Simulated scan of single mutants.
Amino acid sequence: MTFGDKIRRFFRSEQGVGVMLVSPTALYALLLLAVPLVAIVVISFWTQTGVRDFDTAFTLANYKEALTDPLYRQLMLRSLMVSGLVTTITVVLAFPIAYFVSFGVKPEHKSLWIFLITIPFWTSYLIRVFLWKVILGYNGVLNSGLLAVGVIEEPMSFILYNVNAVVITLAHAYAPFAILPIFVALEKIDRSLLEASRDLGESRTMTFLRVTLPLAAPGVVAAVLIVFIPTIGDYVTPRLVGGPGGLMIANMIQTQFLRLNNAPLGATLAVLAMLIVAVIAIAFMLLGNKAAGGNKGGRRK
């Protein structure tokens, strides 16, 4: 059998048909994801010499500058702090909502509640950010309302154009992303396990802590990753509501590429941010797998 006959035979098999079906999508992902990512990594080791000119000699000067400059370290730490705080607030507030929809709502009404949770997606992300500017502004809805009822004597100035505004806006924007995976995890819990726990004398609180929460851990981990990964790279929200004290590492990356004309340093900051996010994401994935493995072990027992 010739090589050509083997190729034709392969593409007539089930494996060959599967390869042909997957190939366009794989090629599309390779061109739009892998190639730009590799290009960013390669450029991070270059030096900018002109508007469009690069010195392609390998150098670690960009990484040395990014790791030693206090400004970049401060922005990276602020980004991690903001993303961690947003993730914590979002997941903590999302869990009770997901729990209520899963356990407190009749099955025929759950789809309606999920529909209501996704309503914020109907409007543009930019519109939602600008609405928060209206709410948190010096003469905004929040200050005006508190002044009207006499809670404050003068408008609060610390809730806009700083880190507080960034956290509030991002927590609201990503709330549905946290609710949905937790809801899915709660829906998969076998209700008979909860009944067995109660029959064995456990209180509702202990049943939640020892049965419900561990079984919902994979959904919680998924929610953490879904919220944490995009928020650390968000640059629109810090630019619009963060002010000088609320800018994050993504804003510096944008500045390096578009304003300071230093693409290698911008690429270096992007690579470092991706590495940090990857390490944290892997750690949470390992925690999720450990929780899932422990749950399966408990079920087998």
Rank of each mutant, 00 (worst) to 15 (best):
T2V: 05
F3N: 09
K6D: 12
R9G: 01
R9I: 00
R12V: 02
G16E: 00
G18L: 11
V19Q: 11
V22L: 15
S23C: 09
A26W: 10
L27E: 00
A29L: 15
L37S: 14
V38R: 06
V41G: 07
V41M: 09
F45Y: 09
W46T: 00
Q48V: 06
R52L: 14
D53N: 15
F54E: 08
T56Y: 04
L60N: 01
L67H: 08
D69M: 04
P70N: 11
Q74R: 15
L77R: 08
L77Y: 08
M81E: 10
G84E: 01
G84I: 08
F95N: 03
V101C: 05
V105T: 09
V105P: 08
F121I: 09
L126N: 09
V129F: 06
G137I: 05
V141T: 13
A148T: 07
A148P: 00
G150E: 08
E153L: 12
E154R: 15
P155A: 01
S157K: 15
L160S: 07
L160E: 09
V163D: 05
T169F: 00
T169G: 02
A171E: 00
H172D: 08
A175C: 10
A178H: 03
I179E: 02
I182R: 08
L186G: 08
E187Y: 07
K188M: 10
D190T: 12
R191Q: 11
S192P: 02
S197L: 13
R204L: 15
T205K: 04
T212H: 07
L213V: 04
P214E: 11
L215Y: 12
A216F: 04
A217Q: 09
V221A: 11
A223P: 07
V224C: 12
V227N: 05
D234V: 00
Y235P: 00
V236K: 03
T237P: 01
P238E: 05
R239M: 14
G242L: 00
G243H: 07
M248T: 00
N251R: 02
R259F: 11
A263Y: 13
P264V: 00
L272M: 03
M274Y: 06
M274W: 07
L275C: 12
L275P: 06
I276R: 07
A278R: 01
I280Y: 05
A283R: 10
F284W: 14
N289Y: 15
A291K: 07
A292N: 10
G297M: 14
G297A: 13
G298V: 11
G298R: 14
